[in-house]
Simulated assay, not measured.
Amino acid sequence: STSEPSPAPSGSNRPAQPAASSSPAEPEAGAAPDLSLSLSQLIFGLWLLGAAAVLIWNLLSHLRFCRYLNRWASPVRDADILALYNALGDQLGLDRRPRLLSCPGLAVPMLAGLFRPALLLPENPPAGDALRFSLLHELTHFRRRDIFRKTLALWVRVLHWFNPLVWLTARTMDRDIELSCDESALKHLPPAEHAAYGRTILSAVSALTGAGRPQSVSISDSDF
């Protein structure tokens, strides 16, 4: 007689397989952590370092200039200069005007301060038409709010410090602001005085080139 084949062992009788662990293996005790940085992290860190350097350099220059003004600047007391200053302010239609201060060490008149602007005169200011043209130029800057444009250009340089085209554009923008200011100022002068105004501005540029222009754009409210 033939014998029937024995049935295959059921699944319940098979040896159990060890379950695969779904959690990642824990690092061995004492293993050094992975400190490697991705390329994007390295680029961001480099950009942040450069932006901080440009910003800190400008802040330190500004704070040094503010300390100098706080120590040496004083209100202008000369009645003739004050009368000329107020007359030019009226001519430009300025209801609010920057403080008029005298400060030793300046080569030419200049406008400084973003939130508390001041028009600074050298200790020995120019006389006659040269003073009138200089005050007209700086008050025109104030009227046009050019100092805000220059501050914006500063922040663009901070954020795009790595791009030489941005620095070139900012320099071109600064030149265009000055030319536009001169064009606006000349509208308040008769044509016969345009040449004398131009000579005054060129003389101021020459003085700044020789002395080195201080940082005059304030990016924070200062006490001066």
Score class of each variant (00 low, 15 high):
Thr2His: 12
Glu4Phe: 08
Glu4Cys: 09
Pro15Asp: 04
Pro15Trp: 00
Ala16Leu: 13
Pro18Trp: 01
Ala19Asp: 14
Ser23Cys: 11
Ser23Ile: 15
Pro24Phe: 00
Ala31Tyr: 05
Ala32Glu: 13
Pro33Trp: 01
Asp34Cys: 01
Leu35Pro: 10
Leu35His: 09
Leu35Ile: 14
Leu37Thr: 15
Ser38Phe: 01
Leu42Asp: 12
Ile43Trp: 03
Phe44Glu: 12
Leu46Phe: 03
Trp47Val: 12
Ala51Asn: 05
Ala51Gln: 10
Ala52Leu: 11
Ala53Ile: 12
Trp57Ile: 11
Asn58Met: 12
Leu59Thr: 14
Ser61Asp: 11
His62Gly: 08
Cys66Ser: 11
Tyr68Phe: 08
Leu69Ile: 12
Leu69Pro: 06
Asn70His: 03
Trp72Val: 14
Ala73Lys: 05
Ala73Tyr: 01
Arg77Ile: 09
Ala79Gly: 06
Ala79Arg: 14
Ile81Tyr: 00
Leu82Ser: 07
Ala83Phe: 04
Leu88Phe: 00
Gly89Phe: 01
Leu92Met: 04
Leu92Cys: 02
Leu94Ala: 04
Asp95Thr: 14
Arg97Pro: 06
Arg97Asp: 07
Pro98Ser: 00
Arg99Glu: 14
Arg99Thr: 11
Leu100Asp: 09
Leu101Val: 13
Ser102Met: 09
Cys103Tyr: 03
Leu106Pro: 09
Leu106Arg: 08
Leu114Trp: 10
Pro117Val: 02
Pro117Ala: 00
Leu119Tyr: 05
Leu119Lys: 06
Pro125Lys: 02
Pro126His: 00
Ala127Asn: 06
Ala127His: 02
Ala127Ser: 09
Gly128Leu: 00
Ala130Ser: 04
Leu131Arg: 04
Arg132Leu: 02
Arg132Asp: 02
Arg132Ala: 02
Phe133Leu: 05
Leu135Phe: 00
Leu135Thr: 10
Leu136Ala: 03
His137Asp: 08
Arg143Glu: 08
Ile147His: 05
Phe148Trp: 15
Arg149Val: 15
Arg149Thr: 15
Lys150Pro: 06
Lys150Ser: 12
Thr151Glu: 13
Thr151Gly: 14
Leu152Asp: 15
Trp155Ala: 09
Val158Trp: 01
Leu159Met: 08
His160Met: 10
His160Lys: 08
Asn163His: 04
Asn163Thr: 07
Val166Ala: 05
Val166Trp: 03
Val166Thr: 13
Thr169Asp: 08
Ala170His: 05
Asp174Trp: 02
Arg175Trp: 08
Arg175Ser: 06
Arg175Leu: 08
Ile177Val: 14
Cys181Arg: 03
Glu183Thr: 15
Glu183Cys: 05
Ser184Asn: 11
Lys187Asp: 15
Pro190Leu: 04
Pro190Glu: 14
Pro191Cys: 02
Tyr197His: 10
Tyr197Gln: 13
Gly198Leu: 11
Gly198Phe: 02
Arg199Met: 11
Ile201Phe: 03
Leu202Pro: 07
Ser203Thr: 14
Val205Gly: 02
Ala207Ser: 04
Gly212Val: 07
Arg213Val: 09
Pro214Met: 01
Pro214Asp: 06
Gln215Ile: 11
Ser218Val: 07
Ser218Thr: 12
Ile219His: 09
Asp221Glu: 15
Ser222Glu: 15
Ser222Gln: 14
